[in-house]
Design a protein around this nucleic acid. Structure first.
Lengths: 216, 216
DNA sequence: TCTTTTTGTAACTTACTTGTAACATTGTTT
DNA sequence: AAACAATGTTACAAGTAAGTTACAAAAAGA
């Protein structure tokens, strides 16, 4: 499980960093909103711990503009314990709100509770493309992309084998085995072209010449 | 929404009692475990606020023995803020854990969040369509829709898998497996058309071409 | 039995999907 | 650099899946 901690206090980073890593979470730490934004554009995380006061802005608006749209569970973390803030944070859609000083074990308990609740989101994100396996829908930024049946199956195959090269033969077998048609090898090329275009010609699908295709 | 407050401190009862009633909740107050037990045997509540220290026992064991089995969302409320207690409470399955002194507004925010999360257990609502699983009745706005047996089963299947694609094959297996008939694939299409019409041709059932159908 | 409702099929429509061919580009080998 | 192989690009005709409509058989009620 990947957690993104957005926090600029060295002390908290140290304390939490250790505790979270120790408990088997893959932890990423960013100390400004800008950095966090960049990171989120390219990576999928399961949970965000977000300080409200950051050097380059406040967590609330960052949450509303970026995080909430993607529906990533978020815990607000802050020294401000004014009740209005807490109420705002929760009403905004945050999963929890914890005020400093806090108990690490309590935070861990709350994290595991939240992750348990959200475990059934089956989404793979690469750059600005998100593949929702359950819905079988692909989003570019946050807009769903219209794929045809075979295009979607082919892209699905690549996403399921993320990080690995998928050979042209594997593709032929997986996608065209059941259609009955013996299919020209070039067909794959054409499909790739169409898929890439719909993905926005960002370089998500990488050609490994002589072998096949790959998504990282 | 009915809330059961199990608490013996007069001060808290007064403060919370006013705030909760004021906010439109139907509040019931019991100050011992015994009383609470009797009450729960005869009444359904939507949420429980449970003090850990009570005159005739502790809230934890009461929670485990009585409440958790019925899966009623529970907020622990206590003066003990030892972290072990908090962790225990959360791990045990409590929805939240608040320590005295607490902000009433924060508590209200947390309550409303929890209730929001738990409201759709037996009714699933999408746009203006509500599927009451227990009654097996579907409402459009507030008017019940007349479905035939198979139509209802098919729609039920889609609602049970809300957010996931249901393939045509799955549909055939789930709905037509037991009728004995080998059924034409087009039959599904025709059923979808009929169901969609009765739902009001709002776009609730989404076609995932080449794969199946889905409700979000 | 007769009527009504439910169910499955068939025929038709539409818009999109699909595969191929022909040509262009890139990369690799000699 | 030339020749070759692999992949990318474009355009198009044939094919197909899903939507629609109408109707007859089967089942359920009266």
């Amino acid at each position: 499980m990947r957690i993104l901690l957005i926090e600029d206090s060295e002390m908290i980073i140290k304390g939490l960093g250790y505790a979270l890593s120790e408990n088997g979470y893959e932890l990423h730490i960013k100390s400004t909103i800008k950095e966090a934004e960049l990171f989120l554009n390219k990576n999928r995380v399961d949970l965000i711990i977000l300080d409200v006061l950051l050097p380059d802005g406040d967590g609330f608006s960052f949450f509303q503009n970026n995080i909430n749209k993607e529906n990533i569970p978020t815990i607000f973390l802050t020294a401000k314990d004014e009740e209005e803030d807490i109420v705002n944070g929760l009403m905004m859609g945050a999963e929890d709100y914890i005020t400093k000083p806090f108990s690490t074990k309590e935070l861990l308990a709350r994290i595991s509770k939240i992750l348990l609740r959200h475990q059934n989101t089956n989404k793979i994100k690469v750059k600005n493309i998100t593949f929702d396996i359950e819905k079988m829908v692909v989003y570019r930024d946050l807009q769903p992309i219209e794929f045809t049946s075979l295009e979607l199956k082919l892209l699905h195959l690549l996403f399921l084998n993320i990080g690995k090269v998928v050979s042209r033969n594997t593709i032929l077998d997986s996608i065209w085995q059941w259609t009955g048609n013996e299919v020209d090898d070039h067909t794959i090329t054409v499909y790739l072209k169409r898929i890439r275009e719909k993905l926005g010609n960002n370089n998500i699908i990488i050609t490994v010449k002589g072998i096949g295709y790959r998504i990282d």
